[in-house]
Design a protein around this nucleic acid. Structure first.
Lengths: 343, 343
DNA sequence: GCGTTTTCTTTGCGCGCGTAAAAATTTAGT
DNA sequence: ACTAAATTTTTACGCGCGCAAAGAAAACGC
C-alpha cells in the first residue's frame, strides 16, 4: 500500500496506466472491460486505496447502484431478520442498500418514500405498512421508482410481490390442530395493521368449513403495532370471560401469541399438548422469539431465505428490464410447520 | 402547486426572486437568511416542489448533513428501539440519518465504518460490537470522523461516550433481591460480547461484598449474539445439575433471562416472588419483551430517552465544535427498577 | 439623515465524475 | 498477414451545486 494519496479518478487512472473513462467504466461494471485492463486496474487498486466519490458518481449516473429497503416496523425482530437477509444479498450483488423503518406510521412511510426518491435508487424493496399505507401515494411512488413489494401485498401496486402463502400457513396449523385434538378458534386483531391478517382469517374460515367444523373467530380490540400487549389484554379478557369455545387457539401471528401465552400464564392456565394442559395454542410466523415462549410456540414458519432471496432476484430482474415488467407477478412461498410444546 | 418543473437551484432561484447563492444558503440553514427572504423562498417552495440534488450538495459541502447510526445487532429490539429514538431526533435537527447494523460481525462493522467514510458524515453515533470490535480500526475511524459512542464503551475511543450506569443497574437489582429474599447468584456468559457485561459482573461482586454476602458468579459457555439460546442451554445445565447456590438469580441481561426462564419452564421449575415458587429471577435492560416473559421479568430499565437524547445532543455539540472536544466525556444514566412477577 | 453593519446579488470558478464522439489501438478470425 | 470487430484513448463538455470575492442594497443605530 503506497502512501501517495489519490484524490480523484484522474490521478488513479494515471497510476494505473489506464485512461479515466475506462476506469470509470470499470467501476460501473468490472466485467465491462477487457480482462487484462481489469487486472491492471485491480493491481493499482491494491497498491493505492482509492474509491470513487459516491456523490460525484451518483450525480450524473443514469442508474445508481442504490437500493432502498423499507420495512414497516423494525422493532419487530422478524423484519430485522428479513432486512439482514436483503441487505446481505444486495451488497453481494454490488448494490448499496439503505435501510428504513416506517415504525408503524403512515407519515414516516411517506417521508421515507420521499427521501428515497432523491436517492435516485435503481430499485426499492418495500414492505408497506398495509392498512395504514397511503395507497395512492405508494402507487405514485411505484410508478416513478422500480419497486418490488414484499411480505405485505397491496393489490396491483408495485412491479411484483413476493411473500408468504397465508393459506399454506393456516391450512397446516388448522390441519395439525384438528388432527391431533380439537379444531381451533382463531385469535386475531379486529382491525389488523397487516393485510396478511385478513388473508389468514379467510383461510381459517375456509379451512374449517372444508373440514366440516364451525369456525370461531375471536377479534380483539387494539390499534397500532404493539401486538404483544394487544394480544395479552385481549387474551386476558377472553380467558377470564370463559369466552373460548374450544380448547385450541390459533393466533393470527406469533406476536399476538406471545401476548396470549403471557396472559394465560398470568391466569394460571397451562398451555401445551400434554394431558395436564387445558389449552393448546399455535400460531404463524416463527418469530425469532417463538422458541423461547413458555411453553415454546408451535407455529408455521416463513421461508425467510426464499422470500428474501426471491425478492432481491425479482428486483434485479426488474432493474435489468429497465424498471418495468410486462405483467405484475405475485410469488408466494409455503410455510413450514414447526412443532414445539404449545400445541 | 404549479406544474412547471424546476430542474435545478438556478431555476428555483429565478422563480422565487432570490439569487442562487442566497437560496443555497437557505437550504444549508434556513435561519441564516433574513426572515423576509426566507418567507419568499418558502412561498416559492410551496408553489413549486423543488428539492436540491443531494448528490450535488454533498459533493462540495465541507460539512454534510449526513449522520451515521451504527448498532451492533438490529435483530435485538432494544437496539431497534434506540435506533428509532436516534433517527427521530436527527431528522428533527435537520440531519439525514443512515442506519446500519453490524449484525454481530466484526467484518461487517468494519465495512460499515468504511462505507460511512465515503458518506462524509458530519458525525456518527456508534454502538460498537464491543469485544468483537477491531479496536485499532475503530480508533482510526474516530480520528477521522466525529464520533460519539453509545451503549457500549470502548475506553478512550471516540469523542465521548453516552450510556447506562451498569453499577446503578446491578446495585438496585442486588439490593432489591437481598432485601426481599436471598442474595442472588449472577448468571452471565463466560465470554460476553458486550463490555457492559464485565462491568455488571464487577458491580455484582462489589455490591455483594459491600452487603456482606459471598458472590456467586455462574459463567456459561456460548459465543455470538444468540443470547436467548445461550441462556436457555446454560440455564438448563445449571438447573439440572442443581448447581445453583441460592434461590435467587440475577441475569446479566434480559435476553439471557428470557432463555433462563424458558429453561426453567421446560424443567417445571416455578419462578416468581410468591411462596409457591422455587426461584426468583431478575435481570437488567428492560428489553421490550421483558413484559411478556413467563413470569414477567423484574428488571432494571435503561433510560432510553435520556441515553438517546444525550447521545444526539453530544454529537451535535461535537459537530458544532468542529469535530473535536477538549476532553473525552463519559455520561452515564442510572437505571430504574421495574418490579414484575419474576422476582 | 447619515454612517455602519448586515444581508443580498453578481460573477465566476471548481468539485469529481458521467458520457459522448472520434481517433487510435488491440484482438480475433480466417 | 490482413480485415473486421472490439476495446481503449483522447478530447471535451456538462451535471448541480458550494463557495469565495466584490459590489449593491437593505436594515439598523443614533
Amino acid at each position: 500500500m503506497s502512501n501517495a494519496k489519490i484524490r480523484n479518478m484522474e490521478q488513479f487512472a494515471a497510476v494505473s496506466g489506464i485512461s479515466r473513462p475506462t476506469v470509470s467504466k470499470y467501476f460501473h461494471d468490472p466485467e465491462s472491460v477487457r480482462a487484462s485492463t481489469r487486472a491492471r486496474i485491480e493491481e493499482a487498486l491494491e497498491q493505492y486505496d482509492y474509491r470513487p466519490n459516491i456523490f460525484a458518481m451518483n450525480q450524473n449516473r443514469k442508474l445508481t447502484k442504490n437500493v432502498g429497503i423499507v420495512v414497516p416496523y423494525l422493532a419487530d425482530p422478524f423484519f430485522a431478520e428479513i432486512a439482514r437477509y436483503l441487505e446481505q444479498r444486495c451488497i453481494a450483488a454490488g448494490y448499496r442498500p439503505s435501510l428504513f423503518s416506517s415504525h408503524g406510521e403512515q407519515k414516516l412511510e411517506m417521508e421515507i418514500l420521499d427521501s428515497l426518491r432523491s436517492l435516485k435508487p435503481a430499485g426499492v424493496l418495500l414492505a408497506p405498512l398495509g392498512r395504514a399505507s397511503d395507497r395512492s401515494e405508494v402507487e405514485k411512488f411505484c410508478r416513478d421508482v422500480p419497486t418490488v413489494l414484499f411480505d405485505s401485498n397491496l393489490e396491483g401496486i408495485g412491479a411484483a410481490f413476493v411473500g408468504s402463502d397465508n393459506f399454506s400457513f393456516v391450512s397446516q396449523t388448522v390441519e395439525y390442530l384438528t388432527r391431533t385434538g380439537a379444531p381451533p378458534a382463531f385469535f386475531e386483531m379486529k382491525t389488523p395493521a397487516n393485510p396478511n391478517a385478513n388473508k389468514r382469517r379467510i383461510a381459517y374460515v375456509s379451512m374449517m368449513e372444508r373440514l366440516g367444523f364451525e369456525p370461531h373467530v375471536i377479534s380483539i380490540d387494539g390499534e397500532g403495532w404493539a401486538f404483544e400487549e394487544i394480544g395479552r389484554q385481549g387474551a386476558a379478557k377472553v380467558l377470564q370471560d370463559g369466552a373460548l369455545p374450544t380448547d385450541a387457539v390459533l393466533c393470527s401471528n406469533d406476536r399476538l401469541a406471545i401476548g396470549f401465552l403471557s396472559a394465560a400464564y398470568e391466569l394460571g392456565i397451562r398451555v401445551g399438548r400434554t394431558e395436564a394442559c387445558r389449552l393448546r395454542v399455535a400460531s404463524n410466523d416463527d418469530h425469532p422469539f417463538a422458541r423461547f415462549t413458555c411453553p415454546s410456540l408451535t407455529t408455521a414458519a416463513h421461508d425467510y431465505d426464499n422470500v428474501a432471496g426471491r425478492s432481491v432476484e425479482t428486483l434485479f430482474d426488474l432493474i435489468e428490464s429497465g424498471g418495468k415488467f410486462g405483467t405484475r407477478t405475485e410469488t408466494l412461498f409455503p410455510a413450514r410447520l414447526v412443532l414445539r410444546d404449545s400445541a
